[in-house]
Nucleic acid binder design. Structure first.
Lengths: 137, 137
DNA sequence: CATGGAATCGTAATGATTCCTATTTAAAAG
DNA sequence: CTTTTAAATAGGAATCATTACGATTCCATG
């Protein structure tokens, strides 16, 4: 997703354009990987050294709810990345060292027919973990 | 996995038979669902009201390392369940209300052929979330 | 530029998990 | 059955990620 698309969604939902949101989104748009709240905090060292974690988490939650970011959990902490292709459902290979991802176009739900009578399916998760070429070397 | 199998593994690895371990394993063997550290704490109300979280987590880690338990993360906390069938790789439907599970015999890794050149695959996760028949009603 | 509500800051609070040290216990040896 | 010793535990403090909150600042609209 581009910055313009993200801001269009935010505007449509009456969210204000602030310096923090601009910086955070810009950081995500430059990084094709899953990032932590601390990553963002560190990146803001220059732009806004005093940024509150409250602000970071609040915006991460907002962005995720609006579908601008997608979220996962790795090593006991929440991680976020720019929702790469909002229209097309897909999954990820995730590097456990650097958080970098690689798309997996297939979805097991399309292939696996599971019989779950009377169950109410809400969602699913399919992720492959490992080391990306850079971190292998 | 049965209690006997669990204790055989523990014995083989020189772990002592303690009252806490007995209680915890017994609790897991009776519950076909993912449980939190707090669930265990509450269950021990009778058997050992003063049990330390250190003890709980230490044993959960040990059991998981030995393959007696399997672990996942749900709603920001770690959950554990008895490793249902150590020989046969499988996945789970997990109830987001009560943690109860249902086996999914298929594995997406067997079906999906992903091209990940130079990547080092360490593992994967496939889980379906929702409400079990009991929690739907 | 005045106004009102959204957004933020700074810090305190929370909840899950881990660390630390003195004490207790399992089980092996005598 | 006692002694011995390393493993296991209790209790509480510490840590880490995350959230809550009151006071202040900022964005957008008129």
């Amino acid at each position: 997703m581009t910055l313009d698309e993200a801001w269009r969604i935010l505007r449509e939902n009456q969210y204000k354009r602030t310096k923090n949101r601009d910086s955070i989104l810009h950081f995500f748009s430059k990084n094709d990987r899953y990032l932590t709240a601390l990553d963002i905090r560190n990146f803001m060292e220059n732009e806004n050294p005093g940024i509150s974690f409250d602000t970071i988490y609040r915006n991460l939650t907002t962005f995720t709810e609006l579908g601008i970011l997608e979220e996962t959990e790795l090593g006991g902490e929440r991680r976020f990345r720019m929702h790469c292709d909002p229209g097309v459902h897909h999954h990820h290979f995730i590097c456990t060292s650097c958080g970098k991802t690689r798309n997996i176009p297939h979805c097991p739900m399309d292939i696996i027919t599971v019989h779950l009578p009377n169950h109410e399916v809400e969602g699913h998760k399919f992720e492959i973990y490992g080391k990306c070429p850079t971190c292998v070397a």
